[in-house]
Design a binder for these strands. Structure first.
Lengths: 261, 261
DNA sequence: CCTTTGGTTTCACTATTTGAAACTTAGTCT
DNA sequence: AGACTAAGTTTCAAATAGTGAAACCAAAGG
């Protein structure tokens, strides 16, 4: 049930179709897409043809199924590399991972959802594509709430409108009001908690990464389990996490303004 | 400069602009793009506005610069995950990396260029985004030649037309004729060499990954240096590499056809 | 052999895109 | 200041590109 508001122009429709292809985990047949979309047959067909011709989706000639094209992987590499945050934050994440020994997440906001752009796993080595690029909910994750708390009013409104407020655990803040109160608490405190709100047993401490002008660029979190540590112990590391977030922000900004007086 | 043939429709133009934004390593200003593109001002402006609105590029309000949007990272995650090759090949790459102790590349063909979709580095741990998603030339790399050698005539022709034949090293096959002869040799031999054709001191042995119907799905290579080993020593591992390539092909196909008699 | 299902093409109708030119800002120079 | 210039944004009639009902084709199944 794609609750799409208003796809602007042909390009919007094409990208909408691209998302539809992406939303299935596997290659999809034309008729599957037709059933899902509310575009007429011919229109959908032409859009897919264009996308295929452009390398954004690939049509398997044997099975007649569409999958996302390799051109996207190339574009994403560029997107990641030129994002002001991820490539610059890399060494800082390494440092934080080593100091804490816990799982580290670096996230950005994408249409009201949390997009993980980098990660350090406590146990295994980095698994970028398999981990980064994933999305999660904003209202019930540490990084999500940390970013929401510092969004300007209109952006916050837009983001809130996209939250499902599904109650993942008994601790989930499952209403707009509860979330707004929490956001105020986060602003007062300077960092966000995840008190097993998304997954039972998983807690985290997250801080926003903000530009000098106060714009939210992303968020950084240290995640652990109730089996291994407590909120208080995590909180003791908050100043260090904040410090690293500030360093990342500074590095990102000086990269974005290489020319200086 | 951009020798674009014929961008079909508005969508093609929009994606063309997306590529332009991607091609710069850093955020670009409107006028930079205007200079590079041969679209009129108003058209380019509208295209960028649409792309921005769609989250494919982001406009930094402070600097007035455009960068690729986070939506791409999310799409690429899906692209990588649903590609028939990369996620499935993962354990096989691990195995090959361990057995050989050398650098492993997994590549696919993208518009006449080689796109690296996964990698195992001999020394460091995996660095996916920083490595995968990169593109390289086809005519002077092991994986490139391995794929070219088994392409159907029309696809080969299209790919050849996109090769620059720049002489990277004294060993580079810098002409269409030399390359065609080499491709025949590869078909006879069953695997491709890179005899320091792209970078001095770097050699590799590559094999294609082909479906049962013979379609080229990708290529797999083991890379080393002349300081550490020789072509002959690498060649001794060719049967094993071929075997793993066959296993990957089989796994990819059974994944693509989960329903069976 | 006839029917169904899934995919591709046609073509008159229309909505979207186009781009020269006019208009704003925001700097810079004298 | 006031007059220039560069960079970005908006307008609007003309033209192009997109639309989608319906016809068509091919392969699978009865």
């Amino acid at each position: 049930m794609g609750a799409e508001g208003h796809a602007d122009g042909t390009v919007g429709k094409a990208l909408d179709v691209l998302d539809m292809v992406a939303s299935h985990g596997r290659p999809v047949r034309f008729s599957d897409l037709l059933a899902q979309a509310d575009y007429p047959k011919a229109t959908l067909y032409r859009l897919l043809q264009t996308l295929t011709h452009q390398g954004m989706v690939s049509l398997d000639p044997d099975t007649g199924t569409y999958a996302l094209g390799v051109r996207l992987v190339r574009l994403a590499h560029a997107a990641w590399a030129q994002s002001s945050l991820a490539p610059i934050a890399r060494p800082y994440l390494d440092e934080l991972a080593e100091k804490t020994g816990e799982t580290i997440h670096l996230a950005q906001m994408d249409l009201g959802q949390v997009l993980y752009v980098d990660k350090r796993n406590a146990a295994r080595p980095v698994e970028m594509f398999a981990q980064a690029g994933k999305v999660g909910p904003a209202y019930c994750t540490g990084v999500g709430k940390a970013m929401l708390a510092y969004l300007p009013p209109d952006a916050l409104e837009a983001a809130l409108a996209r939250q499902s407020f599904y109650r993942h655990t008994p601790h989930t803040l499952a209403s707009r009001e509860a979330l707004l109160a929490e956001l105020q608490a986060i602003r007062d405190r300077g960092h966000a908690w995840d008190r097993e709100e998304h997954e039972a047993g998983i807690i985290c401490c997250a801080v926003p990464i903000r530009s000098r002008q106060g714009r939210v660029m992303g968020a950084l979190s240290v995640t652990s389990t109730t089996a291994r540590t407590t909120l208080d112990a995590l909180g003791a590391q908050a100043p260090m996490i904040k410090d690293i977030a500030a360093q990342i922000a500074a590095a990102a900004e000086s990269w974005r303004f290489p020319e200086q007086a």
